[in-house]
Each structure stands twice: as structure tokens, then as C-alpha cells.
């Protein structure tokens, strides 16, 4: 039965464009449909699990990644835009299974429940801490206002970022595009 269904799976010819970029420190070459969005390209074609699509309208931030060090919501960035850039996802912020200081702080402070939004919050927090290594509570609140979490009520996330920032976080955040930027 499976083989007969497979016959129906004719390849569909669509125009594609070439793409070269660095994903978590590893060079990637791929071809991509011009209309492909970065979130879906990373998730469906490259198998990146640390990107979730919670809204499609740039409201929830679960798809946040860093592109050349800046946080972007990858559900509203064309994959083609990644050409020539360095893209960092949550997979790129810990090394050999060791959590970074920020991830440790999230765990210690119970800053996640279902975990679906967590990669996005981590990436937004990294961007914030890179710009401002010692943010006030108000600055953290503003910096994370583009990410939605339905479980935690945010307070433990704010606390986790604050705590990570006071543990000499600046050097780690400044290093965020490095694959081995995990601080622990």
C-alpha cells in the first residue's frame, strides 16, 4: 500500500534559490523556495527543533533566533534573507549537553513550564543581555515584551534573566554567536 501511495508523490517543480549561511557555527548550503519563511525552513528542512510557531503574526516570539547577533522572529523573515548571515538558535547556546548560565538560571528559577516558548525567550534574553549586560527589572520587562508565555506569568522568567545578568553574564552574551558560548 505504501509503495502505491509513493507513486502518487510526484516531484513538484518549483523555482528555488541557493542559500549559504552559518547555522550555530556550522556552514549550511541549501536551496530554498523564494517564498519559504526562515522558521519553517529551519524546522522542516534542517530539523531545527528549537523553533516553534505559536502565532504566524509576529506576536508570540516562540520562533525568535539571532541573525548576525540581532533577534528576529523567524516566522516573518524570508529564508532567503539568511543568505550570508550567521544564524543562532537555542541549539547553539549550550555545548556538549552543558547548559549555559542563562539556561541554568531558567531551570533554577522555574522559568519554564511547558517549554514551548522557552527557546524564544532564551534567544530574546541573550540579545537583551548582549546589549545591556546588567538590565533593571523594567529593562528586562521591556526587552521581553515581544514574547508570549501562557504558562509562567513571566515573573520567574524576569527573575531568571536578572539572576543570570548578575552572574557576570556580559562576557557570555557578547560571545553569543560562538557555538561554544555556553557559560557553564
Amino acid at each position: 500500500m505504501i509503495s502505491s501511495q509513493r507513486k502518487k508523490r510526484k516531484e513538484v517543480s518549483v523555482q528555488k534559490i541557493d542559500l549559504e549561511f552559518e547555522l550555530n557555527g556550522v556552514p549550511v548550503e541549501a536551496d530554498v523556495e523564494p517564498r519559504s519563511l526562515l522558521a519553517f525552513f529551519l524546522r522542516d528542512h534542517l530539523g531545527v527543533k528549537g523553533i516553534h510557531v505559536g502565532c504566524d503574526t509576529t506576536n508570540c516570539g516562540a520562533c525568535t533566533v539571532l541573525m548576525d547577533g540581532k533577534s528576529v522572529k523567524s516566522c516573518t523573515v524570508l529564508a532567503a534573507r539568511a543568505n550570508g548571515t550567521k544564524v543562532t538558535t537555542v541549539e547553539g547556546i549550550s555545548s556538549n549537553g552543558n547548559l549555559s548560565a542563562l539556561q541554568e538560571s531558567f531551570a533554577r528559577n522555574h522559568a519554564l513550564q511547558c517549554g514551548y516558548c522557552t527557546p524564544g525567550f532564551l534567544m530574546s534574553s541573550l540579545y537583551l543581555l548582549g546589549k545591556n549586560p546588567h538590565p533593571s527589572e523594567e529593562e528586562i520587562r521591556k526587552g521581553l515584551a515581544g514574547n508570549l508565555c501562557m504558562c509562567t506569568g513571566y515573573l520567574n522568567i524576569i527573575k531568571a534573566v536578572k539572576e543570570a545578568s548578575s552572574s557576570n553574564f556580559g562576557s557570555e552574551a557578547g560571545n553569543r554567536n560562538n557555538k561554544n558560548s555556553g557559560g557553564s
Binding site: K49, G50, I51, T89, V90, L99, Q103, A107, L112, G115
Partner: peptide, 14 residues
């Protein structure tokens, strides 16, 4: 937490 913090998840979309 460790799985969820590292993107090593098994949501259906993953």
C-alpha cells in the same frame, strides 16, 4: 527542564 531548555523536544511539529 534540560530537554526543553536545549531545544531537544518532541512537540508534534518537531
Amino acid at each position: 527542564d534540560k530537554r526543553l531548555l536545549t531545544g531537544n523536544t518532541n512537540f508534534v511539529e518537531d
